[in-house]
């Protein structure tokens, strides 16, 4: 069995918002990558940003300063 571990997941309202954040994080050397939204958060589909829990504050500060926005931040076991 795959071992689950705490993970930071950031969700978005649209694919466009996810792409904007991916570009922003890439341009600013911020950690993480795009993954499908885990079912623990929503049974719908869509893209989310996955990073380590310890990156939460850095990402929250950067994204709020960017004006790009996001829906929610979660730390879940996946």
């Amino acid at each position: 069995m795959r071992v689950k571990k705490p993970t930071l997941i950031i969700t978005f309202a649209t694919t466009t918002q996810a792409m904007a954040v991916e570009k922003f994080c890439g341009d600013n050397q911020l950690p993480g990558r795009i993954i499908p939204v885990p079912r623990e958060i929503t049974a719908g589909c869509g893209l989310s940003w996955k990073a380590a829990p310890e990156d939460k504050e850095q990402l929250a500060t950067a994204l709020e300063g960017s004006g790009l926005g996001y829906e929610e931040m979660y730390i879940i076991e996946i």
Binding site: F12, A13, T14, T15, T16, Q17, T42, A43, G44, C45, G46, L47
Partner: peptide
């Protein structure tokens, strides 16, 4: 839309 698949209505944010 690729997002919010269980909603009955089209998501409201642009461009979706």
């Amino acid at each position: 839309s690729g997002v919010h698949s269980y909603d009955r209505e089209q998501p409201s944010p642009y461009p979706t």
